[in-house]
């Protein structure tokens, strides 16, 4: 595979909920190692797009190619095996579990001792726990959440919950990381931290990042390319500067009548 070949291609994706055309004939590609931002007004179909990419929803029309091969209809746990991880717009942590255990779930695909050995907590099962616990501790250090390691996540403030959720996705060591508004509801300092984490992940591990974000300054700062959705349609695509100057984008954000 060539470096510049897309890792994921979305071709003519359409998906409707009743009369709502959440996505209508959207095509774009995701290239390895890039930070791609998806922007657009509320209800534009951004979250729906992520749900299509990782198999939560199945498009009614269109095709998805993964590394040049047509991807069959897949359940989310199968796309996870292909190396896609994500965070959610409304934090979707496992509320009753602590930080370590939440992030440990991100390692589940790499753990494969059988249930019997786990019940005995013996030999390979115990070693595996220790190995992956170490990997999780690295994620915890990286995200600077050592202090809340053993805290049940339901009790954490929103900003930290978002960080733990990022940690859970990172623990999976994904090839493609989907982030649905990772900075929403954060103060300036928290946003800066989050930007730093996202960029570090992208640079250090070469992780491809697809990110939905409303804060334009963030988008302009960290993304390589931008896809703009409006009412389920792709209205623009390009570098941050190109998109910023696009009249259709300006109209969409100013709410020009359709």
């Amino acid at each position: 595979m060539n470096v510049s070949d897309p890792i994921l291609e979305l071709e003519n994706i359409s998906l409707s909920f009743g009369a709502v055309h959440a996505l209508a004939d959207v095509s774009f590609s995701i290239y390895p190692g890039e930070v791609l931002a998806i922007i657009g007004p509320n209800g534009a179909g951004k979250t729906t797009m992520l749900n299509v990419i990782n198999g939560v929803y199945h498009p009614s029309e269109g095709k998805i190619n993964y590394k040049g091969q047509a991807r069959a209809r897949m359940r989310p746990h199968q796309t996870a095996v292909q190396g896609i991880a994500r965070t959610f717009q409304n934090v979707a942590l496992f509320k009753g579990m602590n930080t370590v255990d939440n992030i440990m779930t991100g390692r589940n695909l790499k753990m494969n001792t059988n249930i019997l050995l786990q019940a005995l907590y013996w030999g390979p099962a115990q070693r595996e726990e220790a190995v992956h616990r170490e990997a999780v501790e690295k994620v915890i250090d990286f995200l600077e959440i050592e202090a809340v390691r053993k805290t049940v996540v339901g009790r954490l403030p929103f900003g930290l919950q978002k960080r733990v959720e990022l940690g859970r996705a990172l623990a999976a060591e994904p090839e493609i990381l989907l982030l649905d508004e990772p900075m929403a509801g954060m103060n300036l300092e928290e946003k800066e931290d989050m930007c730093r984490f996202v960029l570090d992940v992208n640079e250090e591990f070469g992780t491809t990042i697809v990110l939905i974000e409303h804060d334009m300054s963030v988008v302009m700062d960290i993304s390589d390319r931008v896809v703009v959705l409006d009412y389920g349609r792709k209205i623009s695509e390009g570098t941050p500067d190109e998109v910023r100057g696009d009249q259709r984008v300006i109209d969409a954000y100013l709410g020009v009548a359709h």
Binding site: V56, P76, H77, V81, A85, T105
Partner: peptide, 14 residues
């Protein structure tokens, strides 16, 4: 516990 607390997120993480 993951399935109990948030089944969609559990499936998404694999």
């Amino acid at each position: 516990m993951a399935v109990r607390d948030m089944d969609v997120a559990a499936e998404v993480i694999g």
